[in-house]
């Protein structure tokens, strides 16, 4: 065979320093700073920024599982939104059952109520997720067209079941007593619940980051996203890994549903479909399969939609699409393209 194409062995100095791709991450602070003159007033800007971060982090909760599932098994679940709706309704029911805790002025009891609601939502959504994977997704592996149709069909059916269980009326979702209202710092008013959402979102992101980077399980997931066959050829059963990720992704979507319900203080069955659009935009922006990209994308979408919603409310959803188009023109595979083999 020809040796002309041979690659010379690299010496130590040939190796480039690990290029950390900071540019996409920098977009978030850049957007925040650019928005200040656009919004005009500092207190409003601060309020919008916190609202945007809260919304972005809730979107991240929901979207991260979907992007991982896609990366790992090349499965795009168009019915992911159903776990959001399910989580929101389970959250409503749990919170209303814990009326004593939510009405109490004790912050700890309030927090416990939200914790229970989120946990119940995650458990229910995760369990349904396992069933959904078995019935809807597994029979159509590798068949993209059928995958889209079946998961969409699954969503139609599941939405009707939710309607049958909870009824068609929109449900108000009250925030617990001590999480209503805002903290006032000088001129700046920051809603307490949004602050909580930011903290929770960051905590979950940190946990996910550690899991993916510091544990064998996480390394296997990341390796599987890049080259599923090779992970199997090393003797690991990617199937189980996938079911686990699918269930965890559904559970996080359920938790996200509860949080989004509390964020909007209203829950409707449409909440899933409504969020699905944002989720798709976010994971396309981030790069399909990339959790880090999903995080940055979610923050960008959350922030942009709050700023634009204030400056020019008419083009709100359109702004997310515009953001997506701009980013894809810059990086056609999204902010952090996943290296596939």
């Amino acid at each position: 065979m020809s040796m002309s194409a041979a690659i010379a062995p690299a010496k130590v100095e040939d190796l480039p320093a690990a290029p950390r791709d900071w540019l996409p991450i920098l977009l978030v602070p850049i957007l925040i700073l650019l928005a200040l003159p656009l919004v005009g007033s500092f207190p409003t800007w601060a309020t919008l920024t916190i609202a945007g971060l809260a919304m972005g982090l809730i979107i991240f909760l929901v979207a991260s599982g979907l992007t991982l599932v896609f990366g790992l098994m090349d499965v795009m679940n168009f019915g992911h939104g159903i776990f959001v709706a399910l989580g929101a309704f389970v959250g409503v029911t749990t919170i209303s059952m814990l009326g004593g805790w939510t009405a109490s002025s004790s912050f700890a009891l309030n927090l416990a109520a939200i914790g229970c609601a989120g946990l119940a939502a995650a458990v229910v959504a995760g369990t349904v997720g396992i069933a959904f994977e078995r019935v809807m997704v597994r029979p159509v592996y590798g068949l993209h067209l059928k995958q889209i149709l079946v998961t969409m069909g699954g969503m139609i059916v599941a939405e009707q079941v939710i309607l049958a269980l909870w009824g068609p009326e929109a449900r108000p979702m009250m925030r617990p007593a001590s999480l209503q209202g805002s903290f006032i710092f000088g001129d700046v008013a920051i809603e307490k619940f949004r602050l909580l959402a930011v903290c929770l979102g960051l905590a979950i992101f940190a946990a996910m980051f550690l899991l993916l980077n510091r544990t064998k399980l996480g390394l296997l997931i990341r390796a599987g996203v890049q080259d599923r066959e090779m992970v199997e050829a090393l003797g690991y059963r990617v199937r189980f890994l996938f079911i686990g990720v699918f269930a965890a992704g559904s559970a996080l979507a359920g938790l996200g549903g509860t949080m989004f319900g509390l964020y909007q203080e209203l829950v409707t069955t449409a909440i899933g479909a409504q969020m699905m659009v944002l989720i798709f935009i976010v994971i396309i922006i981030g790069g399909l399969g990339s959790v880090g990209g999903c995080f940055v994308g979610a923050l960008l979408v959350g922030l942009a939609s709050n700023y634009i919603g204030f400056v020019a409310p008419k083009v709100n959803l359109f702004s997310s699409i515009l953001l997506m188009v701009l980013i894809l023109l810059w990086r056609p595979q999204g902010l952090f393209p996943v290296a596939k083999r």
Binding site: R222, A223, Q226, E229, M230, A233, R341
Partner: peptide, 9 residues
């Protein structure tokens, strides 16, 4: 494998 199957990340 032929493509080496390295996990490049």
């Amino acid at each position: 494998p032929e493509n080496m199957g390295i996990f490049s990340d």
